[in-house]
Amino acid sequence: MATANDGVGAAGIKRAHLGIPEAVFVEDVDSFMQKPGNETADVVLKLLDEQYQKYKFMELNLSQKKRRLKSQIPEIKQTLEILKHMQKKKGTTHPMETRFLLADNLYCKALVPPTDKVCLWLGANVMLEYDIDEAQALLEKNLSTATRNLESTEQDLDFLRDQFTTTEVNMARVYNWDVKRRNKADGAKIKA
């Protein structure tokens, strides 16, 4: 479950996990059930289940973010490779032959003359022209950011899994506490 450096950054500083609330392990169920707001086991179990469902929702969002980053990183790397190839061809007079995607599974051949300018899709139907060096610097920065975000997302998912486990254990402990309490009460009724 938790590792020695779980949630600790490179500088040794504990990092926040995207505002994910930490599930507190219920050590002593008897004293926990005496706290205000914990009138019955059903109320507590309902609250723990709500917390569990929130963690599930967070997991869904983080998993989608992870998938998006995992597909984005290879695209950035591929674009960087193309830029490096274009830089090599920049000083020549021979056009570069390439294929580009027109539609799903449909490619077109093209001859690209040597150039020092490229256009990059930035998203939201926005394309900008850059010098090759500027484009390379931007993509390297984007690759670094995406890689860092992927690592952070994976750490957050690991932290979230620990919260699942803690919440599930708490639910089981409260449920078992309630069963024991009911059995004692039923035993007292039978004796009386």
Rank of each mutant, 00 (worst) to 15 (best):
L101S: 13
F100L: 02
E154C: 06
V43W: 03
D131M: 09
S152N: 10
Y107A: 01
A103V: 05
V174D: 01
L160T: 01
K117R: 14
I13L: 07
P114A: 00
E59S: 07
T145W: 02
F25D: 09
L128Y: 09
A10V: 13
P113M: 08
D42F: 06
K65L: 15
S63V: 13
L111H: 02
F32E: 03
V126M: 09
E39W: 00
M171Q: 14
P74A: 05
L48N: 08
Y175S: 15
P74K: 03
N176S: 10
K109I: 05
V179D: 10
V179H: 03
V112C: 07
E129V: 07
E97A: 13
D133I: 07
D42Y: 04
D131A: 11
A2K: 15
K46S: 14
V126N: 13
Q155D: 14
R99W: 05
K191Y: 11
A137Y: 00
N170T: 04
D6H: 06
V44K: 03
D162H: 10
E59Y: 09
H17E: 12
Y175W: 05
N149E: 15
R67I: 04
K46R: 15
G19T: 14
G123N: 03
T79E: 08
A2R: 15
Y52Q: 09
P95G: 02
D28N: 15
L47E: 14
E97R: 15
K191R: 15
A10D: 09
A16M: 02
D116Y: 06
D116H: 12
L45I: 04
G123F: 02
H85S: 08
G37Q: 06
F32I: 02
L150Y: 03
D49R: 11
A110E: 11
L101Y: 09
V8G: 12
V29Y: 01
D156H: 10
D158W: 08
P114I: 00
E22G: 11
M86V: 10
D6M: 11
K180L: 06
K180Q: 09
E27S: 12
K89R: 11
A103Y: 14
E59P: 00
L160M: 06
A41W: 07
T40G: 03
